[in-house]
Design a protein around this nucleic acid. Structure first.
Length: 443
RNA sequence: GGCCCUAUCGUCUAACGGUUAGGACACAGGCUUUUCAAGCCUGGAAUCAGGGUUCGAUUCCCUGUAGGGUCACCA
């Protein structure tokens, strides 16, 4: 590029919520531009007034900001506002005989009687792709394709080529689905005298069924906002997306944005499509949750509790409780949204209210109710005198002592260990629950 | 179907013609202050097939097969 400034572009069409596949495509553009100290143009391809909606444009912008990959938001280009520019180029092509008004023989529903077609020179187009190497097309089977419905209504290919040219785009990094559009666009570039940008076609991101991730087929899980709302961290999302289709050739898995910018290499991008593997995302997200600052963890936890059914419970306001609860939660979540889900599902009800005990479940395996009551009484005594329970449990059989204790405290067959429970419940509450269990056992 | 692209463990991938084909996620087994979770240790798991080229192919070439993309007056 001999010192020429790199300019990439991100041209979403606001006809749906921001798609994770688009997010990855843009991330690669972003990484590439940043490492070359280039700039990133943002263009809304909103010429389809039927399907383009402001809410979608807002969703794209909002999530781009969340992900921390921002294009040049100060200079947003909207295709819908550039009719005059396209018209100028169209007229010139017409004047030069490189395009012509065509009377259409067969007209379908909503189609025009007369459109502007590009006069195809029917030549072989060869271009070099940063990811795939040389790609060759015979363009005669494209025919004289339509480039506008009228002077005022250009069609995609014309608009894109004109915009990329006017905006000085040097590198077009886009999805693999753009490959077959490339020869058409190169033909138009040559006709309007635009330089050819450098192309890089990224592999497509696929769903588990190995087909393109689509909203129709795969639902809300294709939109960035879904992951945001589910409590994934943007850094984890970025880290994950970067690794789908690219890696630095080392065993490193965790990358900050700065490292990605430094290490990203467009020529090492994978050629084949890659499946969006949520399990890997989950693992990464957990890593980020665990390594976040304590303050960040606490604020996320509070946020989730306030969205749960316990939002007004006194424990939810108790800092001490929150800190202890965090420790428990960090051992079992991979995304923050799970806190609310787990809480609402009732798994931790016993931390907020007294559990119902089932007599048959208090005893461990073949232990008798008498024996269990005896152990619990002993524990009560230890608690009052601040004596360690473990030595006694080891002597008497850990299951026989610890299971009844844990069950008395939680009323659950599955829960954190009894010592963690005593700690978070307070000795008083614990003693109360143990007494209750003894009562039930003796009934 | 035409055109184009692609092909390493289940998944994401490493290996500038010579490796016991490496790592991560997931999975299985084991360990741990009962259970669950987490953690730690161990393990199973791949070069699509067939031809070439080469002393030697995961790697280069061809064919087949499979998968994907694209074939709009949508973007």
């Amino acid at each position: 590029m001999n010192g020429q400034k790199v300019i990439v572009r991100f041209p979403p069409s606001p006809t749906g919520p921001f798609h994770v596949g688009n997010a990855r495509t843009f991330l690669f553009n972003y990484l590439f531009a940043k490492q070359k100290s280039g700039s990133i143009a943002f263009r809304l391809e909103d010429t389809d007034s039927e399907r383009s909606k402001k809410e979608y444009a807002d969703d794209i912008i909002e999530n781009l900001k969340w992900l921390g990959i921002e294009p040049d938001f100060d200079n947003i280009v909207k295709q819908s506002e550039r009719k005059e520019i396209y018209k100028k180029y169209l007229q010139k092509l017409l004047d030069q005989g490189k395009a012509y008004l065509s009377k259409e023989a067969e007209i379908g529903e909503g189609q025009r009687e007369e459109v502007i077609r590009f006069k195809n020179p029917n030549k072989k187009i060869k271009f070099s792709d940063l990811v795939r190497g040389e790609i060759e097309f015979e363009t005669n089977d494209l025919g004289d394709f339509v480039i506008a419905k009228s002077l005022e209504e250009p069609v995609y290919h014309l608009a894109v080529v004109v915009d990329d040219f006017e905006m000085g785009v040097t590198h077009i990094i886009r999805g693999e689905d753009g490959i077959s559009n490339t020869p058409r666009q190169i033909l138009i570039q040559e006709a309007i005298g635009a330089p050819r940008p450098i192309y890089a076609h990224l592999p497509i991101m696929l769903a588990t069924d190995k087909t393109k991730l689509s909203k129709r087929k795969h639902g809300e899980k294709v939109s960035v906002s879904f992951y945001r709302e589910a409590g994934y961290l943007s850094q984890a999302m970025i880290n994950f997306l970067a690794l789908v289709g690219w890696n630095p050739g080392t065993n490193q898995e965790i990358f900050s944005m700065e490292e990605l910018i430094k290490k990203f290499d467009i020529t090492k991008v994978q050629k084949g499509g890659a499946i969006f593997n949520v399990e890997k995302l989950n693992w990464l997200n957990r890593e980020y949750i665990l390594h976040a600052s304590h303050e960040f963890q606490i604020s996320n936890l509070k946020f989730q509790i306030n969205k749960s059914k316990f939002k007004n419970h006194k424990n939810s306001k108790d800092e001490n409780f929150i800190v202890k609860f965090l420790k428990i939660m960090l051992d079992r979540i991979y995304r923050w949204g799970e806190v609310k889900e787990i809480l609402n599902a009732g798994e931790f009800d016993y931390l907020f209210e007294e559990p119902e005990l089932d007599k048959s479940k208090i005893c461990w395996q073949k232990e008798t109710p008498q024996k269990a009551a005896e152990h619990l009484n002993k524990i009560l005594e230890f608690l009052e005198n601040n004596i360690k329970i473990i030595p006694y449990a080891e002597e008497q059989g850990k299951g026989d002592v610890l299971w009844p204790l844990r069950y008395a405290l939680s009323g659950k067959e599955k829960s954190p260990d009894p010592f963690t429970l005593i700690d978070i419940l307070s000795p008083e509450t614990s003693q109360k629950r143990i007494k209750k269990a003894i009562e039930i056992l003796e009934k």
